[in-house]
Write a protein that binds this DNA or RNA. Structure first.
Length: 424
RNA sequence: GGUGGCGUGUCCGAGCGGCCGAAGGAGCGCGCCUCGAAAGCGCGUGUUGGGGAAACCUAACCGUGGGUUCAAAUCCCACCGCCACCGCCA
């Protein structure tokens, strides 16, 4: 949610921001207009209500004829107040609704354009040259089968396409990744959290996922629960309707949870393997901080993501995501894309967004210092999304005999430095 | 799922139709006292929206949403949450 005061002062900037996202800039004028209506209705109601309050009080103090006259007057006024209140309420709902339709202000530093207009910030590491090494890289599906680590056939049998089983070393690899991730997050001041993955509409709405992103969310209609697509949702909503002490910020949480995504409109995309699945586990970093610290915090989170990828010894690049591909809440977003040998390209494995005050305002989270209460900023970033990281590790660290070398950082968690084929 | 109880300010806790934004206490802040502190004493101490340069004015807020009434923390209804006991259960 955008701050109306800021919006009123800078409608043109907001319009530009909307346009850059490929969204409707006229919505800005509409927001201001509905808010004008809201305020007018508010004033009207308040004036009548004040009068009613005064008369009500004098009713109590009077008696006899005087009292019945006042009572008559009070009754008529009561009707007028009810009407004015109804109009006020309608105007408030409409104004809020319109305002909620606006996406976050875009950071002016974010590249403008569509999905393809991202800017590459850096490339780290060098992809292996398998030809030169004298063998052809197998993809993760094949390796997963050989190692007894991933079973997509049975995933499909039991749950349908885009489901899978992690088995044996595949399952062990998840535990190792999670343990390593949580350990690093602890070191960086994150409180580990295992959140609920079923949430109420308010949490979804507040984090900004019920707009254009809604089609990718599983909804349990019977009970009006949503299955979260990321633990960002329950982590952000953790402090919903709270006022946090400014001197305790930043508050950092690392959430480990399953994530559920409908992947609507992705038919035919990434149909093979576990790059794009309906359910996966993820360790997510989430930070509540002062708005003036948000940009620096964003860079810190990005650095922690890079640290993780460096520890996995995987070549990757970092991109500055373009305005049209930010999602409603983010002002700026960096993706880390790992090199996937069998695809010959970089694929998103982690992502960090600076949501500035947008989510916090929707979730009614503020901070308090000696001068009063103020807006707070929220940021999120993936530490590790299990399936894609497994893909990256298997494919990048495979050997000619289909064994896979384990990055040093994970070896102590796995008790081995290599995954070996299980049969044939 | 069933039965009973409860939900008030930072916290404890009173109020059960108008004089209640709400007693009292604790906490916190300022001052007095003191060499200094503790104790004691005095004063102050909510949030949000609207208007205003400001002083200030105004409205709303006693779990949430409706209703009754000229008037609701207070009465009625529904929902949510918490506690206790019972049933079921990983």
């Amino acid at each position: 949610m955008i701050d109306l005061k800021v919006l009123r002062e800078n409608p043109e900037i907001m319009k530009k921001s909307q346009s850059a996202r490929g969204e409707n800039p006229d919505l800005v004028d509409e927001v201001i207009a509905t808010d004008d209506l809201r305020r007018a209705a508010l004033t009207e109601f308040e004036v009548l209500r004040a009068e009613q309050n005064t008369i009500s009080k004098s009713v109590a103090a009077s008696k006899g004829d005087e009292k019945s006259v006042l009572l008559e007057k009070a009754k008529t006024l009561s009707v007028a107040v009810k009407n004015a209140e109804a109009i006020k309420n309608t105007a408030e709902v409409k104004a809020k609704e319109t305002l909620m339709g606006l996406s976050n202000f875009i950071d002016p530093l974010a590249p403008v354009g569509g999905e393809a207009d991202f800017k590459v910030i850096e490339e780290v590491g060098t992809p292996r040259d398998f030809k030169k090494e004298g063998f052809e890289a197998k993809d993760h599906v094949e390796l997963g089968k050989i190692l007894g680590a991933i079973d997509v056939e049975r995933g499909a049998k039991v749950s349908g396409s885009r489901f899978y089983y992690l088995t044996g070393m595949g399952a062990m690899l998840e535990f190792a990744l999670v343990n390593y991730a949580i350990a690093s997050a602890n070191k960086n001041g994150f409180t580990p959290v295992i959140p609920p993955v079923l949430v109420k509409p308010a949490a979804m709405e507040g984090t900004g996922f019920l707009g254009q992103a809604a089609e990718n969310i599983f909804h349990l209609k019977e009970d009006d629960f949503y299955l979260v697509g990321t633990s960002e949702v329950p982590l952000a909503a953790y402090h919903m309707d709270e006022t946090l002490e400014a001197n305790k910020l930043p508050l950092r949480y690392s959430g480990y949870s399953s994530c559920f995504r409908r992947e609507a409109g992705t038919y035919g995309k990434d149909t093979r393997g576990i790059i794009r699945v309906h359910q996966f586990d993820k360790v997510e970093m989430f930070s509540f901080c002062k708005p003036e610290d948000a940009e620096a915090e964003h860079l810190r989170i990005l650095q922690w993501e890079k640290d993780f990828l460096n520890a996995m010894e995987i070549p990757y690049r970092v991109i500055d995501v373009a305005s049209g591909d930010l999602g409603a809440s983010a002002a700026r977003k960096f993706d880390c894309e790992a090199w996937i040998p069998t695809q010959g390209t970089y694929r998103e494995v982690t992502s960090t967004s600076n949501c500035t005050e947008f989510q916090a305002r929707r979730l009614n989270i503020r901070m308090k210092d000696t001068k009063g209460t103020k807006a707070i900023a929220t940021l999120n970033g993936t530490l590790v999304a299990i399936p894609r990281m497994i893909v990256a590790i298997l494919e990048n660290h495979q050997q000619p005999d289909s064994s896979v070398k384990i990055p040093k950082a994970l070896q102590s968690f796995l008790g081995t430095d290599k995954f070996l084929p299980v049969k044939n």
